[in-house]
């Protein structure tokens, strides 16, 4: 209800008392010779993420069937993994409420945090990442960056309307300060290291 000008005016009035300070140089704190995948895996473990090196989607699918035999509805946002609920047919995000396993390919992994980066491109419907009871995520092991500094330096990282660093499943410690996984979002996240297929786009 205030105009932008009035609003900025009161800030300028406050700033009259302040002396401008300089913007610091921010290093990326990269360490020479670290094994990005090993660090990433160590931090995935801390985030309670189970991970597997697989050479095919079928292998990953088999692992998920063993891990979650009761899951009925599988919805995938990546063409590599065929589910039984077509994400392109979803009209409203809430239609994903019945999804037992949501599947997508993450765009980036951050070694320092054991995090993955997803956007509306990888999720197709953003709610897939949160309404699904469980998640299976593919990641190209070549797409691991060292830390948050190097991650944010990726060109175009924030070009997407929505992007999220996801560190494992949802969690809360709001009752008795006891850590519980599966608060409102996904109850588990399983990660598969699987190279992106370059030339077999048709498959």
């Amino acid at each position: 209800m205030s105009s932008k000008e009035d609003f900025l005016q009161s800030i300028r009035a406050g700033l009259a008392k302040r002396t401008p300070t300089a913007y610091p140089y921010i290093p990326t704190f990269e360490q020479a010779g670290i094994d990005l995948k090993a660090v990433f895996e160590k931090n995935l473990k801390l985030a309670a993420v189970d991970f597997y090196d697989v050479s095919s989607v079928e292998e990953a699918q088999k692992i998920m069937q063993e891990r979650l035999p009761d899951v009925k509805v599988v919805c995938s946002a990546t063409d590599e993994w065929e589910g039984n609920k077509d994400i392109d047919a979803v009209e409203q995000p809430r239609d994903l409420d019945d999804v037992g396993l949501g599947v997508f390919r993450a765009e980036l992994g951050v070694a320092e945090m054991g995090m993955i980066w997803v956007t509306e491109k990888s999720l197709k419907v953003n709610a897939l990442g949160y309404l699904s009871q469980h998640l299976a995520v593919l990641l190209d092991p070549a797409e691991i960056t060292e830390n948050m500094h190097t991650a944010y330096q990726r060109p175009g990282l924030l070009d997407a309307n929505y992007g999220c660093f996801v560190m494992g499943s949802s969690a809360t410690a709001d009752i008795g300060a006891v850590l519980v996984r599966g608060a409102q979002g996904a109850k588990s996240l399983t990660l598969f290291f699987l190279k992106t297929k370059d030339d077999e786009t048709g498959k």
């Binding site: 921010i26 945090m113 948050m148 500094h149 309307n161 999220c164 979002g185």
Partner: peptide, 25 residues
């Protein structure tokens, strides 16, 4: 954000980061 995401949750709860760091553009 590289600086702030690295210190926020470590300071708050001692976890590397919050489970979700969501960016709306």
């Amino acid at each position: 954000l590289g600086v702030f995401i690295r210190i926020l949750s470590r300071s708050a709860l001692g976890t590397p980061a919050t489970q979700y760091t969501s960016h709306f553009t």
